[in-house]
Design a protein around this nucleic acid. Structure first.
Lengths: 198, 198
DNA sequence: GTCTATAATTGGATAGAC
DNA sequence: GTCTATCCAATTATAGAC
């Protein structure tokens, strides 16, 4: 049987994480075995434990990395100079684009929350809350400016994020509508829902 | 050990389904064992198979029953006589109330879709689609009447349902806002997002 | 760094007594 | 209708050879 020669640590680690991400997204954390993940990469089950402490840590790091990437990308995005209405539009576009590009990680990040240990859950939840706060800040500014009108800032933030993230449950490249057109339609609905001036 | 006397079939079946519903919602289908479900009800693992063919059928029937109940309750709800705008308001209220009352079933109905066999998935998916079509019908009527303005009927239906169902991820009785107030806020956002006349 | 082999546990499902 | 006992396959994780 084709035995692999020696050291490939630098690439085996990332490949294991990629395989875990894809399999967890497709079948669910509880339904995927360490053997499956190993087989996907072409190593034996035992070898996984050279790269992660255990299955729980593997899941946790996938989710933490995703949330870090999300917050990092948001921080790096250049918000428009205009009013809160323009910043909300920017947020909606950013959210859809970032999430569309990482469907597996997004799916895991909120389907597998209950499979985290309480300590790991708290860490991930804090990151998620930080992202939500970014949107709340925009909505509050719009309320103060008079460019947006939301009945409750916190609820509106959760409602808009739920609406935007929902795109991932059905969007497939090559469908009836292009990615850009979907983005346009959702941005329109988000602005309307937030009471943006026409 | 406390042995149970004979026949209790009429209540054991429903109790097993209730226990499965709660445990599946809390820990996920794949993470819950038949032994756990049995223990919750106070019977032995083997006894479950008197009430269900297997674990898959148990999950499928929970989901099918939920969707049947949803469509039945919607059919029984008396829509207002007015325009599509009023019917959309009625739909939003109905959706939030029905889903708030059955958080466990709702959670399962869309977290465990991937754990259904293809045949079972198709059945449940058809029921879900029927519900979505009910909302599409309202939105299309509003578009024709001029009381609503949505950029795309299908997308709007999915977006609004995602927003409304999102309530379940955070709402807990006794929080900052009452159930009625939350309902009011969401109805407001739904109507705005659908371009309802002010 | 990866392998084989295995420990220790748990899973779904069934058989047969009562 | 429920019990005990059990089959058989699969799980996570570790030990030790190479």
């Amino acid at each position: 049987m084709a035995r692999k020669p020696g050291s490939r640590a630098e690439i085996t680690g990332p490949r294991l994480r990629d395989a875990a991400l894809r399999l967890f997204a497709r079948d669910g954390y509880a339904a995927v075995s360490m053997r499956q993940i190993a087989a996907e990469v072409g190593v034996q089950a035992g070898a996984i434990y050279l790269y992660t402490a255990d299955k729980q840590t593997l899941l946790f790091q996938l989710m933490q990395d995703h949330m870090d990437a999300l917050l990092g990308a948001w921080a790096d995005s250049t918000p428009p100079l205009g009013d809160a209405r323009a910043r909300l539009q920017h947020f909606a576009r950013f959210h859809i684009r970032f999430h569309a590009a990482r469907a597996d990680a997004v799916f895991i990040a909120y389907m597998e929350l209950r499979n985290l240990t309480p300590a790991n859950f708290a860490t991930v939840e804090a990151l998620r809350k930080r992202y939500e706060t970014e949107l709340e800040t925009i909505l509050r500014a719009g309320q103060d400016e008079g460019t947006l009108a939301v009945p409750d800032t916190k609820l509106a933030a959760m409602a808009l994020i739920a609406m935007l993230t929902g795109v991932n449950t059905w969007f497939r490249e090559g469908g009836r509508l292009s990615r850009d057109r979907v983005e346009e339609i959702y941005v329109d609905m988000v602005l309307k829902a937030a009471g943006a001036r026409a």
